[in-house]
């Protein structure tokens, strides 16, 4: 459910940047959403129509780049792709896995007119 408030943030941030550029409308918003961010991209898309209604962002296309989870083990020094958040290295089973990526939730760029 917190996608609703996060999507409101997406719209607020996008409008702030677009207004600074005197844009008349926002054509697209590029987002990065990590696998461990706690954000479901589909829920953001669903909430976006409601949050952007009657704003510069209404009708904008959402380009959501999903960032897969990536970890590095501080014991065996291997990098591994992660399907879920954990500190246990799937290769050597040490409790020493550092999360390198997957927690992102960011607006990367806007296309404005």
């Amino acid at each position: 459910m917190h996608e609703l408030s996060l999507t409101q943030s997406i719209v607020d941030i996008a409008i702030e940047h677009a207004e600074r550029e005197s844009a008349s409308r926002i054509l697209s918003i590029t987002l990065e959403i990590g696998a461990f961010s706690g954000v479901i991209p589909e829920a953001v898309e669903f909430a976006f129509d409601v949050c952007s209604k009657d704003t510069l962002a209404e009708g904008a296309r959402l380009d959501i780049k999903r960032v897969p989870g990536l970890g590095r083990c501080m014991e065996c020094h291997q990098q591994v792709e992660l399907e879920y958040l954990t500190y246990t290295c799937p290769l050597c089973e040490s409790l020493a896995l550092e999360t390198l990526q997957g927690k992102e939730m960011k607006i990367i760029e806007l296309e404005i007119d």
Binding site: L27, V39, I107, E109, I112
Partner: peptide
């Protein structure tokens, strides 16, 4: 139409 960089965390 033009692109602008934002790079802001939600």
């Amino acid at each position: 139409p033009r692109k602008i960089q934002v790079g802001e965390d939600l």
